[in-house]
Design a protein around this nucleic acid. Sequence first.
DNA 1: CGTAGAGATTAAAACGTTATAAATTACCGC
DNA 2: GCGGTAATTTATAACGTTTTAATCTCTACG
Lengths: 340, 340
Amino acid sequence: MAGDPPSQPVLPAGEKPTLRTIAQATGFAVATVSRALSGDPRIAAKTRATVAEAAEKLGYVPDRAARRLRTGRTQVITLLLNTKHEFLGFTHEFLSGITDSLRGTGYSLTVVPDDVADDRLAPVQNILRNNLADGILFTRTESFDPRARLLLEADFPFVSHGRTEFTMPHPWVDYDNEAFTRLAVARLVAKGRTRVSMILPHSRFTFTQHLRYGFLSAAREAGIEHTILEGVTLDSPTTEIAAALRADRLRSDPPDGYICVGEATALMTLASLADSGSHPGDDVDVIAKRASPIFDHIRPRIDTVYEDLRATGHAMGDLILRRMAGDAAEDLNILFQPTD
Amino acid sequence: MAGDPPSQPVLPAGEKPTLRTIAQATGFAVATVSRALSGDPRIAAKTRATVAEAAEKLGYVPDRAARRLRTGRTQVITLLLNTKHEFLGFTHEFLSGITDSLRGTGYSLTVVPDDVADDRLAPVQNILRNNLADGILFTRTESFDPRARLLLEADFPFVSHGRTEFTMPHPWVDYDNEAFTRLAVARLVAKGRTRVSMILPHSRFTFTQHLRYGFLSAAREAGIEHTILEGVTLDSPTTEIAAALRADRLRSDPPDGYICVGEATALMTLASLADSGSHPGDDVDVIAKRASPIFDHIRPRIDTVYEDLRATGHAMGDLILRRMAGDAAEDLNILFQPTD
DNA sequence: CGTAGAGATTAAAACGTTATAAATTACCGC
DNA sequence: GCGGTAATTTATAACGTTTTAATCTCTACG
């Protein structure tokens, strides 16, 4: 009982148009039509025009399954998405950026769960073995990330969010986390803070090392006390993080400056300060990385540094497209700088 | 220069195993192998066992492209994902739930952007016309959602997040937002509040009507003053929402109770209260819907009601699978209740 | 005027699967 | 043994593309 689908192209004729439909309509052979549509220069320009016009009129769209079967190309990009802990709002912005970059390219984006606790290699092996995608994107990159290693060996297109320490170049998009912590330390110092503290993500991730290095060296250069909260990482359960922060306030000389890598931690840090009777902006300062606009509208106001995750996702999409088009890996690196 | 992929099945033999590989290995015809693997009862049990064993040993996995070309089934579920405004953390939890429910089913999840501002029908038409998926999931459902209408007409499997007002049944997963607002009003009344206020999402969404109805009727029944903040919705830019909230505090008798549908709004509401010198828990109360665990760790503490978005996503996945398996639409409705 | 060779088109095969229809084998009662 | 039916298996034809290897049609040139 299907009513007319609103804006169907002309001549639906009941059936979905294929190359054969066009061939019959134009009088050319199927092979010619295929060639013409792919812009093969061996086909006469006039023929190409005729075919293109017919295809347009019939509303022809190539069948993905057939093309995939024949060529082995899937027209699919797969994102390995962390489904466990996230930095608040990360997934939404990041994913929006990727889908935006893929819009109109004919590539579709599939999402596969990537639990750091599980075998991170399994989904990649599955994609490789069963030819489920033409390119892979992943996040939470490790210094010697096994996924990157496998994909490099297989010479399979991928873009990592975060750098690795492999010698062989590969495409990546990253945020300058070292610059972030340096900037954060500088701002706290400018506010007169002398005992700064932060919580790091799990040490396996490359960006954790960047955060640490920037933090430690900037703090040393400034000659201020600095601690990294131990026994807990940003991937710990929130209850544990909250407890650790609260316990830390009970030290004889607790920090007077905090650097928060995520918005959730920032909120929890503020909570621990409230509980211990401290007042941000007064006897203590907090500076956080911000990825969503809402931080502008919460109190107490805290100083933030922006990371544009939508732009990051967009860049990841752009790079995988360029990689699949054959661009050299060493030209496909983007390092975003901290902004206000 | 590809090193051995770690855990390859036995006998890679260089080539990817197909039905023909198994046929040659077992001595049966390709057709028999195909039947045997699909569990066709017309194939002798012993043959089925032999074939299954060979397939296992060779590490056979059916080629998706070939199957798709032949059967017309894509083994793909598409999620129409809102890429504009989101309730903080929504996408992450929701998506995790969906991927979790699809795990091990052979279905893969693709994500397509759905901007409410754009033509919401276009992606659906595209999927239908080009046979890009076997099932569709979407969110932010409208009372007479054009996407639902089109899919109902085409008799195409889908699950909406949120109900519609069409008479024809279709699968949906929803949260009892009327119960939420009723509960929220009751709690504020219990705390002695007499002038409650809230901001609603855009009126086009069905759940907005549920929120409104629960709010208005509960407030009337309790006999308290109640207002819905006008000129602004939850989809407005955060700056506008923040401004509206701040302006509202300047009324002669501003609200002493707030109901917040999202975490972001809750934070902004708290900010407006802080700016106006009010103190939650003291002269005013805020109650918010909470979808992430972090709200337990922020200050000032506010009362929250929980919506489990991961479970919601999981239910959406379960229902689309059952729908595609042929279950009746009227049996595929799940209404989640508010919990603590 | 015959033909080499460029230019343009095409027939046919293949990708890996499933479905249709036909073929083979096994079994049963008489 | 024999016709006949049930139980298995199989050859073959698609699905819609791309690609290889022809084939055809000219024009130009000796």
